[in-house]
Design a protein around this nucleic acid. Structure first.
Lengths: 238, 238
DNA sequence: TGTATTTTTTTAGTCGACAGAAAACTTGCG
DNA sequence: CGCAAGTTTTCTGTCGACTAAAAAAATACA
């Protein structure tokens, strides 16, 4: 009897459309994982999530399966699933991949972009500048992702777009880690680099896009590398 | 024409391990989709699959969710899910992607390979040669995939490996389409090209790897392009 | 006290059932 | 006949319950 009344209360609380359950859970958990609100390595309990979202385990399960497909969650057979760890040893591979994807997507954007692509990209760049001037580092991280995602879209190659998105998300996690533990300032340089990239895409200058994208990627890689070396020093100092 | 959908191999699983259900269904369906035993665009009925595999819909569902993540299956909300189509308009993007991945994975293999990597690759090349001399085109297709997958593995970059695998699988579908409707011979050239690639990797000659991989990719792209132009001519002739 | 073995607890994998959304079919009206 | 409204059918999305695998706890034994 108690169970019935509780359940009804929860159902009225969350009036959902059929078929949206798993998608909603997927999106929510994905955001939380990428924002590090769910810490890497922390265990995920299906029953707990089911209670939290006010639904049965089935849609929760589907969301977890999809997250596992994205590599955001690791599932141990018959035992718990946990938030994927950030693999420090895999960082060089990450650097290689994001650098190549920046280059190739920017090149393709120069070749295949259409007018409204550029408009979208410029709007995002405005958002980025705003976030930068108001010193909102976390916003900058997220807008930066959208900026490069838009460039990838303009390149019109789904294979590259997918991989780029995945890398950007992975990078978002790493950068969160960074700006959480250290200061909240990002170099203004990025804004200028972005501007230059936009201009090169608009001019359809493939070679210049390549150069700029490579330099931009190098910047970010360098930034992350600094993070890790700084981290080390601090540990030693303690 | 072989119409198999009614008489798919029924699976006896009186002794199934717990937790293997979804994985087994995933693997089986994946193979059938890549081999075109399940035709692109054909609908997938969960209940039917549940009967065929002798299990409930739950593990079937999980397998389908994973296949959707791989892009091998398309799900319409609240309505049927179907085998993903081969998108002819997306072929140029495919060419770009597979060419770049061939190049970058082969380069990385030259840099990062270890002794047993080369051994594995050479064994697969033997398999490939055997399949070629005995004129087994379908075997060649599948071994060719494994060959390049092994090279990607030797490059030790999970991001590139994942994308390469996906592209190789996509290519497997396209080639099946080809060798199903036309002749069963593949140019011997491929064997020699493979040999040259192996040698270049062993010599850790990055620049040569790049050239060879690019040429190899061009070959395959050219082959597929021929397929589609031939297809067109036939349609017009009829 | 430390280790091997049994028992308990936790929690993932599976099942059968039902409800709701979309398609397929039927009916009513011009 | 042709089409709009209503009805039935089909099949997915979700649920609660059950089962079994693995971890944690308890016990036995040296």
């Amino acid at each position: 009897m108690v169970q019935v009344s509780q359940k009804q209360a929860k159902v009225t609380l969350s009036e959902r459309k059929r078929g949206s359950g798993a998608k909603f859970v997927y999106g929510t958990l994905r955001d939380e994982i990428l924002d590090l609100r769910l810490r890497p390595g922390s265990p995920i309990d299906e029953v707990q999530l089911a209670e939290r979202f006010g639904m049965s385990r089935t849609p929760i399960r589907e969301a977890l399966v999809r997250l596992a497909g994205d590599g955001l969650v690791e599932t141990l057979p018959n035992r718990s699933t946990m938030v994927a760890n950030i693999d420090a040893l895999g960082l060089p591979a990450f650097y290689d991949a994001i650098t190549l994807m920046y280059r190739v997507t920017t090149r393709l954007a120069a070749q295949h972009h259409q007018p409204d692509d550029l408009e979208r990209i410029r709007l995002l760049q405005d958002d980025y500048a705003n976030a930068a001037t108001s010193r909102k580092a976390l916003d900058m991280i997220s807008v930066n992702r959208d900026f490069h995602a838009a460039i990838a879209e303009a390149g019109r190659n789904p294979y590259f777009t997918t991989l780029t998105l995945r890398l950007l998300d992975e990078g978002r996690r790493i950068l969160r880690l960074y700006y959480q533990s250290f200061d909240d300032r990002l170099p203004q340089e990025y804004i200028e680099e972005h501007e230059a990239i936009i201009a090169a895409i608009a001019a359809r200058d493939v070679a210049l896009c390549d150069d700029l994208a490579r330099a931009h990627a190098d910047q970010i890689v360098h930034q992350i590398q600094q993070l890790f070396s700084r981290d080390q020093r601090q540990n030693i100092a303690l």
